[in-house]
Design a protein around this nucleic acid. Structure first.
Lengths: 345, 345
DNA sequence: TTGTATGCGTTATCAC
DNA sequence: GTGATAACGCATACAA
């Protein structure tokens, strides 16, 4: 048996079926309303319905010279951080009648750049890059985006202030500092921090901010541990710390929730109880942060809102230099109980 | 100052710059290789580079009559279940040189159908629907997809066997049964199960399978609780159960990890210790399942692989009736310790 | 090997 | 109001 394939009905088919010209059909199906006869409208609509017509958006795009799509590039969609961001972008796009095409850069700056180049081929209405969390030269990316913008595109960037495009970001250093202060307020005095590779702005800013907060509270950090920017990295670092002797470290701050959750696991695996034997704090407030127990103290980052805001920002044709700073907030949960946990020696 | 916008360079521009015809330029930049002169290749390449040319994929699509995109529709991208699935699809697409456009149905069958209709406008190479977890009539969706396929499209569906399209799925009932058996093996005898709305196949199959497993082990379930198909639903149901008196229920099985994690929280909030006072088990093995403590016993579902497989299945032009059953596996973790937890009265 | 001409499905500019 | 028809940017059959 042959695989019968009658191609999608075109505007021509609809027009013929309705007994009108393509122009008329086009007008009722898409174009600027009112200029078409009541009866013809009905004929066309009926014909379209009967044939199951769906406009060829690619053809529409070439004809119009513009698309109704937004291109989104993230580092890793399975990461709650990015998937929440993506959800916000999708919501914003939906509201604007746009549809989003998305690609993952897999935490490689080079791949990210290639992806933007490819995506650019779709002449999307908007390009949003949510690719923080990776290191490497951004010049190529900037060039690519600049060309896109020069050709009339709208770009927005999430979490990497300093790039010459409208940006939505948070004050990593300030937020970390606030957290440190809040924790000091709770009575904590002896801290260790787990951070990612030095090249990562996000990691560095959060670490530096946290240390600054401690200093302001008259506290000196006990230990700073370098590791991978992942949950496993957090696990490894915490394990190392514990193996080397916790001394009287009371609280472990990891620069991301993922790392903090990894650290909590390490604590548990070492036979200690997080929140009791040692407090743990993270940064991001991703979903799982409230699922773990004890619930993770962290800095709330409005990920979903940031995604949505990035859409709005790009759409509004914001000034390339505009940085929309989103509010953050320390969220104290039971992983950092108010009464200083018993220190283990 | 005017906002200067010189549109993206076209193939014509490149051709002119290189001093060749558009046809030649087209050939070297895209078409079937070998048929073009060594020197011209270089000229075109140089010209393209200099102008920053990126082919207009929409135009390419209309000309070729086919796209290099796959459309993916999920219920909620922020849900780890779907984001993991999506990651698999994205990986598969990447491998096939496809780019994915994605939309969220927000757990509404009606929206899902509308989305497919819209996506269809892009004449994507593939459409993948990962929209289980919602109830309602699927007829409209089937019609939409059928039209798409009739026009030469490739469709695949995840987790909803019974639809006339290539499908990747798991045996929910069988897997739940295996879990029940494994749990019975561990010595558990008194179970309660938390499930979602009756209309949800996924929920019903998992619940029924679990009960069947118990029955086979000669065990009668103590309680079956109906609730929302969400983490909060799990919380509410578990709270209800505890409030009504746990009696000697030893283990709480929720039909999804999300619900199970909610249930764990309820247990904790009631002053009990999950895994100690009462065991908890879920289904899906989403990321957070290993982050919570005690780590959640569950059924491992190869979400990432399923996404990738769906891509392959669609691409291979599989038989519409083909259902690719993916293996699942009970994973016993510390939320169901081997020694039956002390029952609380 | 290279160029010319035509077509892809729509939109938009004209006339009527 | 409606209908030809020229773009849109690219691919390709065909001729050179």
């Amino acid at each position: 048996m042959e695989q019968r394939v009658d191609p999608s009905p075109t505007l021509q088919d609809v027009a013929k079926e309705a007994g009108v010209s393509v122009a008329t059909a086009s007008r009722v199906l898409n174009g600027s309303s009112r200029t078409v006869g009541k009866d013809n409208v009905e004929r066309v609509l009926r014909a379209a319905g009967k044939l199951g017509y769906a406009p060829n958006l690619s053809a529409q795009a070439t004809a119009r010279g513009s698309t109704k799509t937004v291109a989104l590039v993230v580092s890793d969609i399975a990461d709650p951080y990015f998937s929440t961001l993506a959800a916000g972008v999708l919501e914003g796009a939906e509201a604007a009648g746009l549809i989003v095409t998305m690609a993952v850069a897999d935490r490689s700056a080079e791949r990210e750049c290639r992806i933007v180049a490819t995506l650019r081929g779709y002449r999307p209405h908007v390009i949003i890059v949510a690719g923080s969390r990776l290191d490497g030269p951004r010049d190529a990316l900037v060039e690519e985006l600049r060309a896109y913008v020069a050709a009339g595109g709208r770009a927005a960037v999430i979490s990497q202030p300093g790039l010459p495009f409208p940006t939505v970001a948070i004050d990593n250093a300030g937020a970390a500092k606030d957290l440190a202060l809040a924790l000091a307020d709770e009575g904590y005095r002896r801290f260790a921090v787990i951070r990612g590779p030095a090249g990562l702005h996000t990691s560095r800013d959060r670490c530096d901010g946290f240390l600054a907060g401690l200093r302001q509270a008259g506290i000196e950090v006990c230990r700073v541990l370098d590791t991978e920017f992942t949950e496993d990295g957090g696990y490894a670092a915490a394990s190392r710390l514990i193996a080397a002797g916790l001394d009287d470290v009371e609280l472990l701050f990891a620069v991301t929730d993922a790392m903090a959750i990894g650290a909590m696991r390490a604590v548990r695996d070492a036979g200690l109880v997080p929140g009791h034997d040692i407090a743990v704090a993270g940064f991001d407030d991703i979903g799982p942060a409230t699922d773990v127990s004890p619930a993770l103290t962290t800095v709330r980052v409005p990920l979903h809102e940031m995604g949505k805001r990035a859409m709005d920002l790009a759409l509004s044709g914001a000034d390339p230099a505009e940085v929309q700073w989103m509010p953050t907030q320390p969220v104290l949960r039971t992983s950092t109980p108010t009464s200083t946990p018993d220190s283990v020696s």
